[in-house]
Write a protein that binds this DNA or RNA. Sequence first.
DNA 1: TATTGTTATACTCTATAACTATA
DNA 2: TATAGTTATAGAGTATAACAATA
Lengths: 150, 150
Amino acid sequence: MDITVAESRTLARTLVKTAEAAKHAFNRAAQSCGLPLHLARAVLLLEKPMSMRHIAAELACDPSHVTGIADQLARRGLAERVPGADRRTRLVQLTDSGEETRDRLAAQVAAGPMFGATLTAAQRRQLLELLEEVLAATPAAEDLHPRTAD
Amino acid sequence: MDITVAESRTLARTLVKTAEAAKHAFNRAAQSCGLPLHLARAVLLLEKPMSMRHIAAELACDPSHVTGIADQLARRGLAERVPGADRRTRLVQLTDSGEETRDRLAAQVAAGPMFGATLTAAQRRQLLELLEEVLAATPAAEDLHPRTAD
DNA sequence: TATTGTTATACTCTATAACTATA
DNA sequence: TATAGTTATAGAGTATAACAATA
């Protein structure tokens, strides 16, 4: 607990900046596959057909938002809606073209300049362990939507 | 470079999640001081009077946005505009109340559950080094605003 | 009555452009 | 002509609420 204010801020800022750099690297990979960020995230997620609600949960967004994502994927010929077990539910399933795009994107992400080219395997393991330790000790983010009158 | 797709994604996801947890921890500290996120960031920044443009650069936002921030800080009695060297420039300066809030917030952030209570000093140093190494190797994020027709 | 997906709407955040005043 | 700050407007992204079909 004998951490200084300055050290805490430096650590937090560096952490956030690195995460932003990771997002940008992902964004570049997505663009090189011709996809905007949110579609790239969805494509990478769809290892198998998934219900809209499941996708929304995974992407941490509102289910209503997934409708638009599925529409855009469909318009690009990357995915289609197929019936689910329940006749209410519809699954989003990648087409052949979509699977090819997903695999290409995954390869791009892995080959990106973020981790592979920088850290040794031991360093990557170390980094992951440290991050997980911090994460485990952090109380889950309950309310994401504080309202402040201003 | 012999990093697997799975490892790269795990690392990236954990990194982003940890950064989000850090943001939430900061947000909680801010709320406990009665401040929304963007005002808390500004208050913490104002160690000394700063021009609007300088604040905008530090917060990585458009200068026009700083007008609103300064207004809101003023309305809460936390800061006021004072004339700068140039008669065009105006500096934002914390009031006594603002400085007190800033110090309280800084203490809250440092005492937060993120790093101090979790990692040893050696681990914190290690984490910072690893993050900086990744950050240094990452090409700067040039264009933040990709446009995609959809 | 509860749940899935859809639609329509509203809200938040932030950038862009036009404007005033200084330089 | 260029710069600091302000104002007004517009856009992207996302949530909320009402709705239809199904369970």
